[in-house]
């Protein structure tokens, strides 16, 4: 296929049309983001700097990153073991369990928010009894719970694929050499699926940071980045909200690029 695209003389009509559509799709995404970012940077750079110096903006963005990070840690703690069980064992109802774990991905975000409120609200199933100890409504735990709910499927699925890619025979070999199962997991399975887990964690974090609907229903305050952008948009309009949006996307993009570069040499053994 590569050769076909490279040789200029003889391009299949189908490949030509598909390539044009690829270009259209790419432009749709790239132009939208680039227009916002470069528009801000070129037309109103001082405005961007002013926004970056605003402590409430920066604390909102930081809160997004921090809450997303906490959600990712919890997702790793829950999702990795889940992925291992799903990768290694067959049990009755496994398909159902897998489908339900995927539901948060397809549920509308506001619906997720309502569902979370009924459970973690001050009179909710879990929020009620925990009321004296933990506040979910309009507090960090609420933000983290909302982010976790919408993002944990990415980690569980990625972990499952990672563990699946490790041949159980390697674990067996480790065990016959004297390793209890937990050591075989720690020294053989885990390093060999590290890349899948990292990719899953990055996806989870990205999904958590981008969540708005579910978070805003359970915790409008303290404001995370997306909530602040929405709030400013409603109150003051586009020119007030755009710099925050540009800052948020620049910071998160930078972090993702750094992670990609740092992890480039990571475990080359689980790339299927």
């Amino acid at each position: 296929m590569k050769a076909m695209i490279r040789s200029k003389k003889n391009i299949e009509p189908l490949i030509f049309v598909f390539s044009l559509l690829l270009l259209l799709l790419f432009s749709f995404i790239f132009v939208t983001l680039a227009n916002m970012i470069f528009g801000q940077v070129l037309n109103d750079f001082p405005g961007l700097v002013r926004t970056a110096k605003n402590s409430s903006v920066m604390s909102s963005i930081f809160l997004s990153l921090y809450a997303g990070f906490l959600a990712t840690l919890i997702a790793l703690f829950l999702g990795a073991p889940t992925g291992y069980i799903l990768a290694r064992f067959d049990f009755p109802g496994k398909r159902l369990v897998e489908s339900i774990i995927d539901v948060p991905v397809v549920v509308p975000h506001t619906v997720a928010g309502i569902a979370l409120l009924t459970v973690f609200g001050s009179r909710g199933l879990i929020g009620g009894p925990l009321e004296p100890y933990v506040q979910f409504r309009d507090a960090l735990p609420g933000i983290v719970v909302a982010m976790l709910f919408v993002s944990v499927p990415y980690l569980a699925n990625s972990a499952r694929e990672g563990f699946k890619s490790v041949n159980p025979r390697l674990e067996n070999a480790a065990r016959s050499l004297g390793a209890p199962l937990w050591k075989a997991f720690l020294f053989v399975t885990l390093p060999l699926s590290a890349r899948h887990l990292l990719v899953g964690a990055v996806m989870t974090w990205a999904r958590a940071i981008s969540e708005f609907g579910a978070v805003v229903m359970i915790a409008y305050y303290p404001m995370i980045g997306p909530t602040l952008i929405y709030d400013r948009f409603l109150s003051y309009g586009l020119s007030a909200s755009r710099p925050v949006a540009v800052l948020l996307i620049l910071i998160t993009l930078t972090i993702f690029i750094v992670i990609r570069i740092l992890s480039a040499g990571w475990s080359i053994y689980d790339r299927d």
Partner: peptide, 20 residues
């Protein structure tokens, strides 16, 4: 008894060496 306590060595057809 779990495998690690049996003092047997197992060599698989594909050798199952740890690639990392």
């Amino acid at each position: 008894l779990s495998p690690e306590k049996r003092n047997l060595a197992f060599v698989y057809q594909d050798y199952s060496l740890f690639p990392h």
